[in-house]
């Protein structure tokens, strides 16, 4: 290598000299050189670089997914994983299972209602937080806390706040006169338990929705908003005709993400109610866990969680079309 610098004094010669210097190089490094050369090819490089990610996903996502599909038509269980083919019996079984049907409905009720509430509150909040005011950064920092607390921890904290005996919410509620002294048994009654689950979902999801909305709104060029203001457009006018169309794409992806993550989540239900009272608050995910892991019935458990799939598929297709349209320009 020491020669290199003297070689470079006469740049005109350098190229040729380097080319001819290839001959005496030992064979091993020549092969290395050839591999390096090949690696410079755009396709070879691209495929090589992406291969580990693809491999990981194929082995630990795609393959298990097909295993899960196979589970659904077998009698596999934790105690005897080598199972026999049972056709659609698992599906028939769960369809006749009242808890399953309740879980299916709950999944939609919980997800949709908490999404709607989040979108509504998130919009209000995003506009409030976008106004310049003293202490904005602090408020924002405090505000995203629910998003940063691990879901399981958040759910447990809420279950402590809603504890039948020592509920702090009930203490406050009864002291300011919302309801009489002992207060509602939040997690023990069907309706109240469902409301509780939704509230915790909103508590957890609201910050993220708000932050993405804020980012979206900020991305609307200020001039456009000013132009609209000059055109004397009222607030709702501006919101509908200008802000929404411009931020729609990113908003849409964000909401879809948050929808999917809530749709498939079991943590809140599992830690808050464990499906109780009397299995009225299960969602598909938590019931699949109950049946598949706790009771060890892999076939039926997999069949239950497979019901999540059509919704995910729709979400995936919608997102795919969106991404394709993004790539066209």
């Amino acid at each position: 290598m020491a020669r290199a610098s003297s070689e470079r004094v006469m740049p005109a010669e350098a190229g040729r000299e380097r080319a001819s210097a290839a001959a005496p190089v030992p064979i091993v490094s020549r092969i290395g050189g050839a591999v390096g050369q090949l690696f410079e090819h755009e396709w070879v490089f691209g495929y090589t670089m992406i291969a580990p990610a693809i491999l990981y996903i194929v082995l630990l996502v795609a393959y298990p997914f097909f295993v899960a599909l196979r589970f659904t038509v077998t009698s596999a269980s934790v105690s005897e994983p080598i199972a026999s083919f049972v056709g659609l019996r698992n599906f028939v079984d769960i369809w006749n299972d009242d808890i399953f049907r309740r879980a299916l409905i709950n999944t939609f009720v919980f997800t949709i209602s908490s999404q709607v509430i989040q979108a509504f509150l998130g919009t209000i909040l995003a506009f409030l937080l976008l106004r310049p005011f003293r202490g904005r950064r602090v408020v924002r920092a405090l505000f995203i806390i629910p998003f940063t607390v691990p879901v399981a921890i958040g759910a447990i904290t809420w279950s402590w706040m809603l504890n039948p005996q020592y509920s702090v919410l009930n203490w406050v509620g009864s002291h300011i006169g919302l309801f009489p002294a002992p207060g509602p048994n939040w997690l023990g009654e069907e309706q109240l338990a469902m409301i509780s689950v939704i509230v915790v979902n909103v508590w957890r999801g609201l910050p993220f929705t708000t932050i993405l909305l804020m980012a979206g709104i900020t991305a609307v060029p200020q001039e456009i908003i000013e132009a609209a203001a000059l055109d004397a457009a009222g607030f709702f006018r501006r919101w509908n005709d200008i802000i929404v169309p411009i931020i729609a794409p990113i908003l849409f992806i964000a909401l879809l993400f948050s929808f999917v993550s809530q749709f498939t989540d079991m943590t809140v239900v599992w830690l808050l109610t464990r499906g109780n009272p009397v299995n009225t608050t299960h969602v598909l995910a938590s019931y699949a866990f109950e049946v598949g892991i706790v009771s060890g019935d892999l076939g039926r458990g997999a069949a239950i969680s497979l019901f999540l799939f059509p919704v995910l598929l729709v979400a995936a297709i919608v997102m795919l079309r969106y991404l394709k349209s993004q790539q066209l320009d």
């Binding site: 740049p11 190229g15 380097r18 090819h41």
Partner: peptide, 24 residues
């Protein structure tokens, strides 16, 4: 950019398959 066809010479050297870093 890799050409779809033809030859490129820098000096006397055919550089079709030479990486940018080695083209001097």
């Amino acid at each position: 950019e890799q050409q779809s066809g033809g030859n490129i010479y820098i000096g006397d050297r055919l550089v079709n398959d030479v990486a940018p870093k080695d083209r001097d």
